Amino acid sequence: MGSAGLLGVGYKVQDVPSGVPRRQRLLGPLYESLVTQSIQVYASLADAKVSHLRTKGGAQEVDLIVEGPDRRVVAIEVKATAAPRSGDTRHLLWLRERLGPTLADAVVITTGTYAYRDEDGVAVVPAALLGP
């Protein structure tokens, strides 16, 4: 499979639960897997646990929850894009509302070049900047 296959070129368009037709792509899941592996390695160095959050019925989902020994949490969304779109952080904002000060930070990991905070205070961090 070449780059076209990773991007979904040639795959049948499918309806997803949101009703928006999409092509099955492998690039996003592969990128998320790579970032997850990296986060697990870095978290282990800090004696932190990594998990995933999905509410009953799947209304809210956060890709990675990193819980430190002090029980504070960093919530992470992984996006295979350079710049997250509005709405990409909605589950992080939902979790921030629920956890309050227990949430140490909310982060979107991207394929971009620069790290910054968006208008909601969510950290946008390129995967290339991750490290222990």
Results as ranks from 00 to 15, higher is better:
67 E>Q: 15
9 V>F: 03
84 P>M: 11
40 Q>G: 05
53 L>Q: 00
79 K>D: 01
47 D>M: 08
63 D>Q: 07
97 E>R: 14
3 S>V: 14
109 I>P: 00
21 P>E: 01
43 A>D: 01
70 D>F: 12
114 Y>F: 03
125 V>T: 06
68 G>F: 15
2 G>S: 12
9 V>G: 00
34 L>S: 06
63 D>A: 11
16 V>G: 05
43 A>P: 05
85 R>A: 15
91 H>E: 02
100 G>H: 06
6 L>H: 10
29 P>N: 03
37 Q>M: 09
120 D>L: 11
71 R>H: 13
2 G>T: 12
77 E>C: 04
64 L>H: 03
82 A>M: 06
97 E>T: 13
39 I>L: 09
45 L>G: 14
113 T>P: 00
58 G>S: 10
54 R>G: 04
114 Y>K: 01
63 D>G: 07
18 S>Y: 09
4 A>G: 12
2 G>N: 15
15 D>Y: 15
28 G>I: 04
26 L>H: 09
19 G>Q: 09
18 S>H: 11
5 G>W: 11
65 I>C: 03
74 V>Q: 06
26 L>C: 08
70 D>V: 12
127 A>N: 02
82 A>P: 06
16 V>H: 14
47 D>H: 15
70 D>G: 14
99 L>V: 02
103 L>S: 01
63 D>N: 14
121 G>A: 13
89 T>E: 08
4 A>T: 08
94 W>V: 11
95 L>S: 10
111 T>E: 02
117 R>A: 10
37 Q>T: 12
123 A>V: 12
124 V>F: 04
58 G>D: 09
60 Q>N: 13
102 T>S: 04
76 I>A: 00
104 A>Y: 07
7 L>Q: 02
28 G>R: 04
20 V>M: 07
86 S>L: 14
51 S>T: 13
16 V>A: 06
98 R>V: 04
124 V>S: 01
112 G>K: 00
54 R>L: 07
95 L>F: 12
30 L>W: 02
80 A>S: 14
5 G>Q: 08
84 P>F: 12
25 R>S: 01
29 P>F: 08
55 T>W: 10
39 I>C: 03
71 R>S: 12
82 A>G: 11
22 R>H: 06
55 T>F: 09
120 D>I: 09
